[in-house]
């Protein structure tokens, strides 16, 4: 999915304020740009971040604008199940959803990131677990993801974040799809 010579890819992300969607978006943008691809992202700041619906978008390829029109996302990443459900219309036909949910439901790829994060003793790692899964589906390797996380995480959270992405990355292997 991530060959540089292919046409553009658009990833729409949704969650609730405080779940860390900005770091998720930033990590994916860094991953893509390190493969020599052009990226542009859009994110929510300010009032909207206080527990409200937060969205971000990442466009990889020769795009000029940061927003993704409804019905054209190649991937929808949901940090929260009901928000993901509400934004399924962002996907193009054939686009894939990658969602933090305990059950498969209407989604293509799921991981119970909330449950895993609590098991790991770091409820704030939901974004990293979902990032691990999404990045693996997008074709990035674990070493690539680790490098980016190391560079963009606040120092104190590097090891927790890496633990999170590894758990998400591995969750795909352990699940037949």
């Amino acid at each position: 999915m991530m060959e540089p010579d292919r046409t553009g890819r658009q990833v729409f992300m949704v969650g609730r304020g405080g779940q860390g969607i900005l770091l998720l978006a930033k990590a994916l943008a860094e991953l893509a740009s390190r493969k020599g691809m052009k990226v542009i992202t859009s994110e929510t700041h300010g009032m909207a971040m206080r527990g409200g619906t937060v969205t971000a978008s990442l466009k990889i390829g020769s795009y000029m604008s940061p927003l993704i029109p409804a019905g054209s996302a190649d991937m929808l990443i949901g940090l929260e199940e009901s928000e993901a459900q509400d934004h399924l219309h962002m996907l193009r036909p054939g686009g894939v959803s990658v969602v933090n949910a305990p059950q498969q439901g209407p989604f293509d790829f799921t991981v119970d990131a909330t449950g895993r994060a609590l098991e790991m003793g770091s409820p704030g790692s939901v974004n990293m677990i979902v990032l691990g899964l999404a990045a693996s589906i997008l074709g990035f390797t674990l070493p690539e993801i680790r490098t980016v996380i190391q560079e963009i995480s606040p120092e104190k959270f590097v090891s927790k974040n890496i633990e999170g992405v590894e758990a998400g990355f591995d969750s795909r292997e352990s699940k037949s799809h």
């Binding site: 609730r16 909207a48 509400d86 219309h89």
Partner: peptide, 30 residues
Amino acid sequence: PEIVMRVLDEVTGVPREPEDGAARKQRRPS
């Protein structure tokens, strides 16, 4: 982008596909 596309359709007379008019919930901030 959606509004821009709708405006372009209107101005150029391109027939539009019916829109999915479902109201989207937006969780309020607190």
